[in-house]
């Protein structure tokens, strides 16, 4: 990493080392908020480590350390395969989403002609329509396209569902960016299309990161579509696998929590990786300009 990047990046931030009273307050608030946020997660851990004796009523602040739940859950729900499936479909879905939506957001923000304005309006309207309406026709369509039990169909469906939001996000942020950087590239002999990929796309790293973080999570946790389009064991994703712990009456919460805990680790890791781009993407870009 270039040293000057970090120095400039620091300049915009107030230092939060407890030097004066205000900073102490802020620190206290941060600690408090973190505690509040961590409660459900801690309960998930308690639940995942719960022995069957006594059930949920026997949950105490100290875990039971019934680690065998993780092994049982992993095996019973074939979680390894499910994680692989979820990974392939989420990566594919996010890739497709970012590729198509960033382009669309760019042209909608920069060239608001009749075509682009119409497309944007339709997408916005669709964002407000409850998706449940298209379940049956979509199912019929996927049977005809032989898309049931395939990665590609789920990838397309999930990417499409996330598209209105992603395009909205991209177009709003690109509109707020100065057009001067692209214009200087045009003077250098680029086309607008090339200018997008060379200049704009690297600059909107934070936006791409939020799309990946927000929509990737939705795809990772997708149940509403998966329940219809992924039918055989070989293609089950994580939520479908976790749903195996629901019985006809009631559910096996400890095993479900154990499976859910394992299933969320990759999602948390992805968040930690992508939030770094929040800072680096924009400073690197800004320095170039």
């Amino acid at each position: 990493m270039k040293p000057n990047t970090t120095i400039v990046a620091d300049a915009r931030k107030t230092r939060l080392s407890p030097r004066n009273r205000l900073d102490w307050y802020l620190l206290a608030i941060v600690v408090l908020i973190s505690c509040v946020a961590i409660i459900p997660f801690y309960l998930l851990v308690l639940l995942a480590l719960k022995s069957p004796i006594g059930g949920l009523a026997a949950i105490r602040l100290m875990p039971d350390f019934h680690f065998v739940n993780f092994i049982t859950a992993w095996q019973r729900s074939a979680l390894g395969k499910a994680m692989f499936n979820s990974l392939v479909m989420t990566a594919g879905g996010v890739g497709l989403l970012v590729f198509l939506s960033s382009m669309a957001g760019y042209t909608i923000a920069r060239f608001p002609g009749k075509l682009n304005r119409t497309i944007f309006t339709i997408l916005l309207l669709c964002m407000m329509i409850p998706g449940i309406i298209n379940t049956v026709p979509l199912y019929t369509l996927l049977i005809r396209l032989k898309g049931i039990n395939t990665y590609w169909a789920m990838i397309c469906v999930m990417a499409v569902n996330a598209m209105p939001f992603a395009i909205f996000l991209y177009s709003s942020f690109i509109r707020a960016m100065p057009v001067s950087l692209e214009e200087s590239a045009i003077i250098d002999g680029c086309s607008w299309f090339e200018a997008f990929w060379r200049i704009t796309f690297p600059l909107i790293g934070p936006v791409t990161s939020s799309v990946v973080i927000l929509q990737g999570l939705g795809m990772w946790n997708n149940y509403a579509q998966a329940v219809f389009f992924l039918q055989d064991k070989a293609h089950r994703n994580i939520p479908l696998s976790i749903s195996l712990f629901f019985q006809q009456y009631g559910a096996d919460w400890p095993l479900m929590a154990a499976a859910a805990f394992l299933g969320l680790l990759p999602a948390v890791a992805a968040f930690l990786v992508f939030q770094r781009y929040f800072v680096e993407g924009i400073t690197a870009g800004a320095l170039k300009g």
């Binding site: 459900p40 999602a267 948390v268």
Partner: peptide
């Protein structure tokens, strides 16, 4: 984190 935990659980 709260948003990451599977809605089912």
């Amino acid at each position: 984190l709260p948003a990451v935990i599977s809605p089912m659980i």
